[in-house]
Write a protein that binds this DNA or RNA. Structure first.
Lengths: 142, 142
DNA sequence: ATAATACTTTACAATAATTCCAACTTATGC
DNA sequence: GCATAAGTTGGAATTATTGTAAAGTATTAT
């Protein structure tokens, strides 16, 4: 059974039952920079936690997302990816291998007037697409 | 049978068979600013084109995307959305009703060194999220 | 500590989006 | 016109995700 590194409720109104399954998922996610999909999370966690069910993974991901402790990325056209780093940052995705990497540089993107005037903007996310170093190299070789 | 507004092959290497189904889909898409999903496209086109099949819609969308005549948006967590405007621009999506609007303002986003150094960047897309005018108003009223 | 309760987990069924397939049809180049 | 490569079709298959109802367990108040 995984040890608790951070409390599952980091802020008021965020209380969640502290079940071993959740702790295992949370533990896997904590500090994870790979932007895993639900399936990857399930595969990894269920290795150590035999009876883990897929529904529990989805439930937990949804709960954590709802409480703002996890960010759901829509950058991969095939599946949702999850990012435990909820601080504002951006991403690069490799068009070949779908690897996602964080972009922590502070990008100043002004919200255009046309939008700011009548919409309420709550988030700004920059997606860079292209080839990651290894796919770039592989392409060059052929 | 729909009329052809633009040639289906706009550039070399883009030749596609000019079938009535494709023309119908292309006609629906041409100038469309609603960022429709495959299902919306199917629903609309099959109204006038009885025998239209879902597979044809997906085939056509994939072909057009592959030839750079259509852009596949991954901004909606639930489904792919399609944008016939392939000129570089950005988007705003309403978190409530999932409406997507174009952002044609030119946003200057410098590619961060950390990425530019070893990756190959082919695209930069800014996603704004929040509430569209009507959802914003609706929220205020309650 | 314990019991009551409300929330969780589980296995599996159900959806929903998208892709695959194999037989049939058709646009296009000669 | 004909041959043929490419496209269409309906339905089955696949994949991601959600719903469900029964059984289990963390938490809270005792």
């Amino acid at each position: 059974m995984p040890t608790l590194k951070k409390p599952l409720q980091a802020a008021p109104g965020r209380k969640m039952k502290r079940t071993p399954q959740r702790l295992a998922i949370f533990d896997y996610l904590d500090g994870n920079k790979k932007h895993p999909s639900a399936e990857e999370i399930y595969r990894s966690v269920s290795r150590t936690y035999q009876s883990m069910s897929f529904a529990t993974v989805y439930n937990t991901l949804k709960a954590l997302t709802g409480k703002g402790m996890l960010r759901e990325l829509t950058i991969d056209p095939d599946r949702k990816r999850y990012d435990p780093d909820t601080s504002p940052h951006h991403h690069f995705i490799c068009l070949q291998c779908r690897k996602i990497v964080d972009v922590h540089s502070i990008l100043t993107v002004e919200t255009p007037r046309e939008i700011a005037r009548d919409h309420l903007v709550v988030g700004t996310h920059v997606e860079f697409t292209g080839l990651c170093p290894s796919c770039k190299k592989r392409k060059k070789m052929q």
